[in-house]
Design a binder for these strands. Structure first.
Lengths: 348, 348
DNA sequence: ATGAAAGCGCTAACAC
DNA sequence: GTGTTAGCGCTTTCAT
């Protein structure tokens, strides 16, 4: 796009002419080379500053073979035409922006079709970015593995899976699912609905934790209690309404995001029951909404700030040639009113 | 997991050698030039694809003098060391990402010190981006004006101000403040606290609407009811607690963001009063949290999706050489329980 | 201490 | 149709 507004930018040659020196000297002066006379350097610096000149980084990068841009890839669901909206993803983006900025890198924010995560590799292949930070594995662990096999520098937010070739950073999903389920069980709940699409690795791991907790309590899992709701709230709500209407008894919900949990709260209430008296609910992520919501959510806290720095550091180490092991970050359950410290199920 | 970073990328010369043609032919083939033999084009295409080759955009851009990258600038408060966290800003970022992606542009996300908005201009000067989308004017209308005077292509989310040289896109802040205040007055509230830092243009305009509503109702404004709270919640909460403790009577709060309104709710409750019976509260932005919160918030809805497309379109028109007038987008009040359709103040 | 010239990976005249 | 050549704006030998 070079419209009429494509005004010619000031360049080194202009500064050189104005200063009465050669471009090489300007280059050296601007880069603080000791080879150039102090007085000249100062003069050139002044001039450049007063003209708001700044180096054309495209050209500089080309020449220096360098690049300080990292791509942050946010997959979106093409079917749901879902945009970037889940607060957790947005928070991670914010955290990554902070971490990258602090380290002097630029951040390219890019959405890709969740079914074609490998499309993100072109950002690297085309030299737009030196590496990729992908938010979520979605259903394409395989594509991520292929990218890693091709040596695309890559760090993925998500769960650690067997046979994983790429570096992942994620919360401890098994522990998260386990803690939430154990807490609900400790409250005397025996029919705990699991809400989340277990085709996504993170959810799958939380589901493992959930199943483990049931086992510990000597309970058999009931598939009727497992709702494969997507993170997109409208579709999720419909599934939750079906659950509530479906005649399947349940006295608790383990939601795989805070928004999912809140949709569950609304569905439960719409069916004439109360939270937490009839149905205790836990969320996941511990976004700000969990503290303000009605009721405030008991939820699994994920360390978003840490996630940002860990992912960026992992990528930089990868770029430095290190082998970087996947990283699992600690999570913990935060108790609030939706599933408080004690709340035996109401007798009906 | 896998290290080994610095391997040289494939380039056109490699493809040319492998295909037994010259680089020019490869260039033409990859760009779909009709000048090249169909068979050759196909062969080169296959080869490139099978090797995951993609054009080095840095070099291409340098040669073509083009760039498809737009910078989205999120100011942060250096004192509060505030990170990108307000849900409204994050939503706008998401909306801009969507709009830019749809139009084939890349998005560079950048944080800048809110006191030095003009630092964002280097993104343009350095050729990193063809234009800037700045989220909020903060306290530096002047710096934005200077950038515009320097012909930096620039669209700012915020209020329309007198003597404005840059293109702004924003909600109708006067109308928003007016509608919220009128609603509270219609509820019989007479002592309405205004919560927001009026040094920020958007807040200032909402404040005008608030004052106008008071005037219409024949009420005199009371400076003791104006709380210059920042968008950062911790600091805001402290100021709200002081308001509640301060012996100043009030029966409503007009908050300049949903999070500010929810902090007000908490502060009011902490002081032993109820929402909306004792104090009715309105928020601003209509973020998802407003529907889930306790109580759900009556709030001024801002059209976030529209904001994204409008800002991007304005920038593209600017880049196309057009003069683009500031744009004020419609807002409307959404009624929920924090200040419902009827809620006369409780008699004390 | 400074300048001239080559070249980063690519495209577009201009030849042939 | 395809190759040759000359840059895009910058850094860096290599001269001087």
């Amino acid at each position: 796009m070079s419209g009429a507004a494509e005004r010619k930018r000031l360049q080194m040659a202009d500064i050189a002419r104005l200063a009465g020196v050669s471009v090489s000297t300007v280059s050296r002066a601007l880069n603080g080379s000791p080879l150039v006379n102090d007085e000249t350097r100062e003069r050139i610096g002044q001039l450049a500053r007063s003209l708001n000149y700044s180096i054309n980084l495209g050209a500089q990068n080309l020449r220096l073979q360098k690049n300080q841009t990292v791509a942050v890839v946010v997959p979106y669901d093409p079917k749901a035409r879902q945009h970037i909206s889940d607060p957790f993803f947005l928070s991670i983006v914010g955290a990554l922006a902070d971490a990258l900025t602090d380290r002097g890198y630029d951040m390219l924010l890019s959405r890709v079709d969740a079914e074609r995560l490998d499309a993100a590799a072109t950002l690297y292949d085309a030299g737009k970015a030196i590496g990729l930070l992908v938010i979520g594995q979605w259903r394409h662990h395989d594509q991520l593995n292929e990218m890693a096999a091709r040596k695309v520098p890559l760090v993925v937010w998500g769960g650690q899976l067997p046979q994983q070739l790429y570096c992942s950073v994620g919360g401890d999903n098994v522990a998260g699912g386990l803690q939430a389920a154990r807490h609900l069980l400790a409250l005397g709940r025996r029919r705990i609905a699991f809400v989340g699409d277990a085709r996504l690795p993170e959810v799958q791991l939380r589901h493992q934790g959930y199943r483990q907790a049931l086992r510990e309590a000597g309970l058999a899992p009931d598939p009727a209690l497992e709702v494969a709701a997507p993170f997109e709230v409208i579709a999720a709500r419909a599934m939750l309404d079906r659950l509530c209407a479906g005649g399947v008894a349940f006295d608790a919900v383990l939601g795989c995001s805070d928004l999912l949990a809140l949709q569950a709260v609304q569905a439960v209430r719409a069916s004439g029951r109360e939270v937490p008296a009839d149905v205790a609910v836990t969320g996941y992520d511990d976004m700000p909404v969990a503290t303000y919501s009605d009721p405030p959510l008991t939820t699994v806290h994920q360390p978003v700030g840490l996630a940002g720095t860990e992912m960026v550091d992992a990528l930089l180490r990868l770029l430095g040639g290190e082998r970087v092991a996947p990283r699992v970050l600690p999570v913990h359950l935060v108790l609030r009113a939706s599933a408080p410290a004690t709340a035996a199920p109401r007798r009906r």
